[in-house]
């Protein structure tokens, strides 16, 4: 299979009024891979995806979907691209099965509805109107609608929002299967475990820009396997502390009073830290050492402030 990317975004800018929600974003996604766009709420994930789906026009930059322009060549792309919107987009007054059947009529050779219904467990609510479905049931129906046309590329915007654990695993299983069939899957999420379990490639987005990307292993490892977190009074001398801890370790104050030591943390590192704090009569309220998770990386990159 030639390796031209399924999705290629370069220098995308999208403004709402004066505010750039997407601000120079680059992203590439390939067939046969799950690409997770990970970011806090308001990072510009949905806007980016909507520019790819042809639902919004980019202000600057280029978006190529399967080699085409998502708005000018929409006619070519619609049969080949599946879309699951964040807010579902399901009409509320009709039965679940009728909704799926209706979307399938837009395609010449859609998937077998019986099989899809069984796969995603839609049978138990097939005759229920969409209005009366739970959040997880709606999400599963929306996913079925997104893939009923055998798409080559699917955009899933927060696919497991509002789902119970069983539904989530059914959805994840299906996403893996799509990937193994060679489909390019691009999903947005703010759930670490979703990105960690599912994604071949993670793109961390914040304030409209890509701030890190790579495989989960790349992002988590970052050269070292461990990280030390320290909570103490704010304003400590991080440079001085780094010197005291020794070579190869760096110290940052991510938020007032929340410090992180990155590098090869050894038993001696903890002892040195204790001595350094004792000499300054600073009491640590918490010291933890552990393997970095995607969540650590994410919080290190995006900060801990609520927004």
């Amino acid at each position: 299979m030639p390796d031209s990317p399924a999705l290629e975004i370069s220098d995308l800018v999208k403004r709402y009024g004066d505010r750039a929600v997407v601000d120079g974003l680059d992203l590439v996604a390939h067939a046969g891979q799950v690409t997770a766009v990970l970011g806090p709420n308001g990072a510009g994930k949905t806007t980016t995806i909507e520019c790819c789906e042809g639902l919004r026009q980019a202000d600057e930059g280029t978006v190529r979907v399967l080699g085409h322009d998502p708005i000018l060549d929409a006619h070519h792309l619609r049969p080949r691209v599946g879309v699951m919107l964040q807010d579902g987009g399901l009409p509320t007054g009709i039965r679940a099965a009728d909704m799926l059947a209706h979307v399938s009529r837009m395609y010449a050779r859609p998937r077998d509805l019986g099989e899809l219904t069984e796969r995603l467990g839609l049978g138990s609510f097939a005759r229920t109107t969409v209005r009366r479905l739970s959040g997880g049931q709606r999400q599963r129906l929306a996913l079925a609608a997104a893939i009923v046309g055998h798409p080559e590329l699917v955009f899933l915007d927060e696919p497991s929002a509002g789902m119970d654990p069983q539904s989530r695993h059914a959805v994840w299983e299906l996403v893996r299967e799509l990937r193994d069939e060679g489909v390019a899957v691009v999903l947005t999420t703010h759930l670490m475990d979703e990105a960690e379990d599912l994604a071949d490639h993670v793109v961390v987005v914040d304030e409209g820009r890509v701030i890190a990307q790579g495989s989960v292993r790349d992002l988590v490892a970052d050269g070292d396997d461990s990280t030390l977190r320290l909570d103490a009074e704010p304003g400590l001398d991080v440079d001085g502390l780094a010197v005291a801890l020794g070579d190869g370790l760096s110290v940052r104050e991510n938020a007032p009073g929340a410090y992180v030591v990155i590098g090869a943390v050894q038993p001696a590192t903890v002892a040195a830290l204790g001595a350094w704090l004792a000499a300054r009569e600073v009491l640590a309220t918490r010291i933890t050492v552990g393997r970095r998770t995607l969540e650590d990386v994410f919080l290190d990159l995006t900060g801990r402030d609520l927004r």
Binding site: M1, A31, G32, R78, P79, R80, P91, G93, I94, H102, R105, M106, Y107, A108, R109, P110, R111, V148, G149, H150, P151, E152, R179, D180, E181, G182, V183
Partner: peptide, 28 residues
């Protein structure tokens, strides 16, 4: 290794999409 991608389902003919949507709107 990925298995060869199944061809996409293709668009239904325009008249068929139009008839489907017309019925959908009227029934709604």
């Amino acid at each position: 290794m990925t298995t060869p991608l199944a061809p996409h389902a293709g668009a239904a003919p325009a008249w068929q999409r139009f008839v489907a949507q017309t019925g959908f709107e009227a029934r709604a």
